[in-house]
Amino acid sequence: MNYFQIFGFSAQFAVDINQLVELYQTLQKKVHPDKFAHASSQDQLVAVKKSTLINDAYQTLKNPLTRAQYLLELRESDQPSEQASFSDNSFLMRQMELHEMLDDVKHADDIEHAIFELSKELNTGSAELFSTMQSQLDENTTSSNLLAGDNLRKLKFYKKLQVDLDKLEDQLFDD
């Protein structure tokens, strides 16, 4: 049974998150350890395994990037290895610029404004990639899935920048 089937979903990118959360809670209640307190150790073990599986499925589908990654794996799309270097020059140049902007945030005269500007850049850049990836996944052909994988890898670079920006914000505003 794949992660989508666990929740009764068809294997596609669009997932109703509210419905996912609801189904996740319902399913977890069914396999909750309290219900198996008096069951055989065999049944207890099965319940724990199911609970872990439901949790893995939920965590994977909840996040759009891991969901896209999982969907491409299910479709057996022939993607480059996770370890392979990425070499789209103009994209990487842009990433460098965004990292430089992030470096400059802490030296900016108006830090809040600098953060706002960078967030805007990150949101615009990733939103465009995201919607392209979404339609490529929906198209679901060999070539569209390959392109979707490419955009997924680009989105991971944006994700990293976003995590770094969030960290910086915590540092700057927590002390």
Binding site: F86, S87, H99, F157, K159
Partner: peptide, 13 residues
């Protein structure tokens, strides 16, 4: 030479 690692988001020039 520009390269990046998608797994961790590293960028190297």
């Amino acid at each position: 030479g520009m390269v990046g690692a998608p797994a961790c988001g590293d960028v190297m020039k």
